[in-house]
Write a protein that binds this DNA or RNA. Sequence first.
DNA 1: TTCAAAATTTACAACGTTGTAGATCGATGG
DNA 2: CCATCGATCTACAACGTTGTAAATTTTGAA
Lengths: 351, 351
Amino acid sequence: MAATLHDVARVAGVSIKTVSNVINDYPHVRPETKERVLAAIAELGYRPNLSARNLRSGRTGMISLIIPNLRNPYFAELADDVMNAASARGLSVLIEQVGGDRESELSVLRGSRRQAVDGILYSVLALGQEDAAVLDEIPLPMVLLGERIFNSSRDHVTMRNEDGLRAATEHLLAIGCRRIIALGSHPGEVIGSAGLRLDGYLQALDAAGVPVDERLIVHADRWHRVDGAAAMRSILAAGTEFDGIVAFNDSLALGAMRIMQEAGLRIPQDVAVIGFDDLDETRYSVPTLSTIEPGRPQIAETAVDMLLARIEERASAESSPAEPREVLTDFRLVQRESTTRAAGAPGSSGL
Amino acid sequence: MAATLHDVARVAGVSIKTVSNVINDYPHVRPETKERVLAAIAELGYRPNLSARNLRSGRTGMISLIIPNLRNPYFAELADDVMNAASARGLSVLIEQVGGDRESELSVLRGSRRQAVDGILYSVLALGQEDAAVLDEIPLPMVLLGERIFNSSRDHVTMRNEDGLRAATEHLLAIGCRRIIALGSHPGEVIGSAGLRLDGYLQALDAAGVPVDERLIVHADRWHRVDGAAAMRSILAAGTEFDGIVAFNDSLALGAMRIMQEAGLRIPQDVAVIGFDDLDETRYSVPTLSTIEPGRPQIAETAVDMLLARIEERASAESSPAEPREVLTDFRLVQRESTTRAAGAPGSSGL
DNA sequence: TTCAAAATTTACAACGTTGTAGATCGATGG
DNA sequence: CCATCGATCTACAACGTTGTAAATTTTGAA
């Protein structure tokens, strides 16, 4: 069916190894031989069989990206960034979705596709400290994204969750908010994004001398728009007073804004809102949403580089692996309409 | 490093073929042997090497999904649907993004990852009739998604572009719109989604006896929110009068709504808007967006099934391949606030 | 012209798996 | 007790590639 090295060799009148040498740019091939081989390759439309090459080399040129769900725009944008970074380095990306619960994350990590990739980029969601040992067992290079599992021997690329959320909270304080809802907490969580972001919120309040009101710390297990909407409905039902919202991600903020608007609250006049992630859609919502840009492209680039380094480290010497590294990316506060209270805020017509 | 069949065989005291037989559920293995082998597999943490298996079997268990861009929510949701359908059938999905221009689509189609997958799901964007021959040359099973390339010998799974857009237009006519903008046309295109959808629009106007006004057919090369916003700005600048918009996809509609709201136009009171695709976010926008639900999960399921059938057809006999099939999925009009003009429309508070 | 060194090419053996064909073993039936 | 059959297991040869080591050719200097 498809042409192989043997076919090309026969047509070119050389050995298969010479064909292989031409393909791999081995230096000692006579120019005229090379030409003949290339002609044969073109004639037959030969393409190397990747399974065979992988079997021989032990490398597949693929990495997997484990994320909860592509419908979540944050992960779709992350996947895009990762695929761009990977393809610039000659790698393909196999995306694997996990349900977002601990069981399914563990089962994917242990899953059989493991044998098909050189390494794993793993966006941790449901695992915690107690699972660090499991991660260390996986016999593949792996880089953790956007999360901090304590004591794991894996490399991390992490955004500045605390600092980012503190900056967001400080921004709301600066424009005059005093009763600021923290939207998206996970009760009891310390290490994950929710725990860290809550910490940033508390730090900012503390620094400003604003007392913490437990009723303003609002739980949301998952961080989709629908969860932000649901949370806002119960906040309104409970009658809690508030004048600002710092949402732990943009989707929560967008969902909450929708419900507030239905209830007749004006943004930012009655309630200022800021999110986290800088999704594309924060530029198009009504009003546009202020947010923390967490350095996502940088996360993707750095993570792919680190993973590639681990893969190469493993391939070369038996030397002991380098120490696990943790990289924190730079964040940036992006102010848009949802926190712009100056008179004549643009785009508020009709609102 | 990683355990192989040989290692397992040694530990279990059997031949490698017996281990292979156990793994592949070959029936004639004594229960006690099987047990011993399974114990050895567990002890060593053995996992089959997929490269070797693929080399031997000629199958990889992977299909690639070629789409323009994951940041486009339509394709993110499609990818999610495809991955779910594929994983239910034991397949993994390799997503490949193409720039959206003809050159990059062709180069990805011819690209070397071809050898790594059993088949291709290809969401055509920039190719047309003149490229049908190129598609036929690709020596891999392939199913085309959401598009109709005439005369290609490939299977298609297509949404009802014309019917859907005609229904959308009829809906606007039914609620009283008379000057309806068709947003997203590609001048000169006949076969692609834009051409078909424009056709649906024209059919609906024709059937209702509403004259066509060329100024109401608005071009938009790409179909992202930003393009919808840009198009709406020029419409407003041109001073064209209109009372309804049928956008060729949801993103265009959302972008256009944003600009209309900035300009003080009320939706749906001044302008009713309907989109196409039923993105998740149409349920959360302000106002929520009426749209055509094109049967995306059905598209994904059907396409994966058809591709699998082609892969198996190829693997088995040398019999001549089955005739190319074209499947049209069912669509559904989803009415939301953006076309609901009845008094007391919900959710319009503040707007 | 001759010979060593360099350049070029080749044969062969892996990589880890599964299909084929055949070997071994026990039980069955005559 | 032996031929036969099915059940169970095994040896071997692929699949298409690349590394190793060795064979062959060419080159350049003596």
